[in-house]
């Protein structure tokens, strides 16, 4: 067991970790269960979190690799009283069916929109290409994210 320290949802936190522990295991054993495990090979995106502004798959990233970095998980994004505009848009668009992929979608889309608030449809499709959804066929998910990216709607949505 060794210690690592990183910024987790805005708080500097220190954890004791196993050297072969993945970030998803670290998060989930600390009750941050919004980060989902769907494939454990980095191919479904259910475990997407934001590291230093970019979406990464927590199932293939080792916990030690976040030493000194900034990690955002779904738990840090919004809550019932202050949902992120993406969460509101996804909920209202009918984009949440089983919902298992939704936190990962939110994280990946947020990473994009934080960087490019006016991302185009093409950019959005490309940036969400690592998040599998088997329920929606992506149509309503894209509707929601595109709506959040549309110029001028950010303030209204929040």
């Amino acid at each position: 067991m060794k210690e690592i320290t990183f910024t987790l949802n805005g708080e500097v936190r220190t954890f004791r970790i196993e050297p072969d522990e993945t970030l998803i295991d670290l998060l989930r054993r600390n009750q941050l269960t919004g980060t989902k495990r769907g494939c454990d090979t980095g191919m479904c995106g259910s475990c997407a979190v934001i590291m230093d502004g970019r979406a990464v798959n927590a199932c293939i990233l080792y916990a030690f690799q976040v030493e000194g970095r900034t990690i955002e998980t779904i738990e840090g994004v919004g809550d019932f009283d202050r949902p992120h505009p993406l969460q509101t848009a996804l909920a209202d668009a009918g984009a949440v069916q089983c919902g298992f992929c939704t936190p990962g979608m939110v994280m990946t889309a947020k990473a994009l929109l934080d960087q490019q608030p006016n991302a185009t449809e093409t950019e959005i499709k490309k940036h969400l290409d690592g998040n599998l959804c088997r329920c929606t066929g992506y149509v309503k998910i894209l509707d929601a994210v595109i709506q959040c990216a549309a110029p001028g709607t950010e303030e209204e949505a929040s």
Binding site: G34, K36, D79, T88, D92, F100, V106
Partner: peptide, 21 residues
């Protein structure tokens, strides 16, 4: 009517919902 699915927000927020959670 196109109302919000009743569990949509809790799932989008990542609340503990599934067996593994």
């Amino acid at each position: 009517q196109p109302l919000r699915k009743i569990d949509a927000m809790s799932l989008a927020l990542g609340k503990p919902s599934y067996v593994g959670d």
